[in-house]
Design a protein around this nucleic acid. Structure first.
Lengths: 318, 318
DNA sequence: TTGAAAGCGCTAACAT
DNA sequence: ATGTTAGCGCTTTCAA
């Protein structure tokens, strides 16, 4: 319509070369009139680059992940990448689908926040796609990760309770295969053993990260007559659930029972009393995860990164 | 490598036509050996279809939106579409970028949960892309929406308070341009006027959907000596913030002050006392939003949909 | 400064 | 049942 070649149109629209002013004007005018919209599939196919990074996570409503995503997004923006989030609800089939999307070039890379994939599967797919793990991970040769030292973090939290004179610490974990669940339990046991306290399997409860379920479990546990003087839960929601159950049984926090949660999410300061909890540098984690991915995309072979955690002391465990 | 044409390879990999067993075997074998992965950019370019639907929302950690997304995802799956979430944090520039992605064919369509775009901008972009609004919306000729009757829902909630004998209802809203904010305020005013109660601008507080900010605001409001006998907040988090402030001032809920929230999110039953709140059929909303989009993608001109809401009565307002 | 033409990887129409 | 070929929409060499 502007009587020029497609090449010239491309040059005008992308400003990749200088084009005479009148032609430029004609092209833009024609584009406007035709309501022309470029087709990214063609462009990306040709350039072998989409500028899109996928972020895979289980649940959207997870303020921890949300903050990590913020970190990723900010850093991605600096490098001209856009991110899109894939929610798997922990279903392996969905994971496969989204991983397939990046393997098959609809996106340039992926940051995985919590995957159910085994180290082998992860490694296999990493041969075909640029993947970085963040927060949760599985030790895999070619899939780098950024995380905290979960074991040390849990140990620090439990030591805090022990130094406050607590001797029977109820551990509320999750019986899944996530590395954080595993390492935090390890940290709990290490804290005990370092201070000469016995590990009592009767002081271990498994829940599902949630508030309601944990509340019920702790409620039942108390009704069964079990006793303890502190709680370490590997999520704030579970800690909050425990607090509710304790209150129902006339126990006060922190006087009777001290409670520590994990992640320093919003709920930690929304419950009464506000929760002492372990905080992770989520935004920094996201930022680093993207940096690592970026390095990978540019042919580098990045190292894993361990970031520092911090114990936030509030009322539930002075 | 398998000594066959690319067409045959395509047929084997997509199972689109019958291929002799030995050739099939040879192709699969070669593909495996070469570590072949199909390139979706090529395929999608050719087929003018990506099978991807974008869902645009402001914040990830919004359990309301999250449930809507679940509804969308379930329905999308049935029709062989995959969804990806775009978080804008309410920034128009980000909205533009993601809208551009669908306009430029990297995705087949988009469901917008809360956009800052004006009706005109929305309408303009809808000429180039299949877009459906969900929950929040702006009345636009060619961009259908699914939502509840926000005005009626707010009116129902306030009437509940009025029928309980409450006469001075504090309205806690958000001063933004979202249709829900606007309509819920309208509903509040209608309830008052239907029952012969005056509208008092001094009984209106604007916050930001959040817990902390609302708590502070209500705290200050009470310190200033204002009185009221009920609260209607347009989000559960704000209602929860109000409850905290009330407690701090020695007021009991529901005896002294009845409180009603909105959305029936998790927090509604996690606070003490559990909140009476307006529930929306989030999953159904998502499902319908996808159905409408699907209809659009197949050349239909779908109508807007209004779904029913429900008042969930808990302890905070009997 | 502009155009012609090749080709990114794929599928589908057509031919055999 | 299989191959040939055109073409999706774009960018980028190469040539003029």
């Amino acid at each position: 319509m502007a009587n020029v070649s497609v090449a010239t149109v491309s040059r005008v629209l992308n400003k990749t070369r200088h084009v005479s002013e009148e032609i430029e004007k004609a092209v833009l005018e024609a584009a406007r009139e035709l309501g022309y919209t470029p087709n990214l599939l063609g462009k990306n196919l040709r350039q072998k680059r989409t500028g899109i990074i996928l972020v895979m996570m289980s649940t959207l409503t997870n303020s921890f992940c949300s903050k990590v995503v913020t970190g990723i997004a900010n850093e991605a923006e600096k490098h001209n990448y856009h991110i899109m989030i894939c929610a798997t609800n922990g279903l392996p089939e969905k994971e496969k689908i989204y991983l397939g999307l990046v393997k098959n070039r609809m996106a340039d890379g992926m940051i995985v926040l919590n995957s159910t994939l085994s180290a082998d599967e992860m490694s296999l797919i990493s041969n075909h796609a640029a993947i970085v793990q963040c927060s949760e991970y599985t030790a895999s040769e070619n899939t780098p990760f950024v995380s905290i030292d979960n074991g040390l973090a849990a140990k620090d939290a439990c030591e805090h309770l022990i130094l406050n004179g607590r001797k029977r610490i109820l551990f509320i974990g999750v019986d899944n295969s996530l590395i954080s669940s595993h390492l935090r339990m390890e940290g709990y046991r290490q804290a005990l053993s370092c201070h000469g306290l016995p590990f009592d399997p009767g002081l271990v409860l498994y829940s599902n990260y949630g508030y309601r379920n944990t509340m019920r479990m702790v409620d039942r546990y108390l009704e069964e007559g079990h006793t303890f003087d502190a709680v370490f839960a590997i999520s704030d929601r579970m800690a909050a659930g425990a607090v509710s159950a304790l209150r129902k049984h006339g126990l006060t926090v922190p006087e009777d029972i001290e409670v520590i949660g994990f992640d320093n999410t919003d709920i930690a300061y929304m419950v009464e009393p506000p929760l002492t909890t372990v905080s992770q540098p989520q935004t920094e984690m996201g930022k680093r995860a993207f940096s690592i991915l970026y390095e990978k995309l540019n042919g580098g072979e990045p190292e894993n990164v361990i970031l520092p955690h911090k114990l936030i002391v509030r009322k539930s465990a002075k």
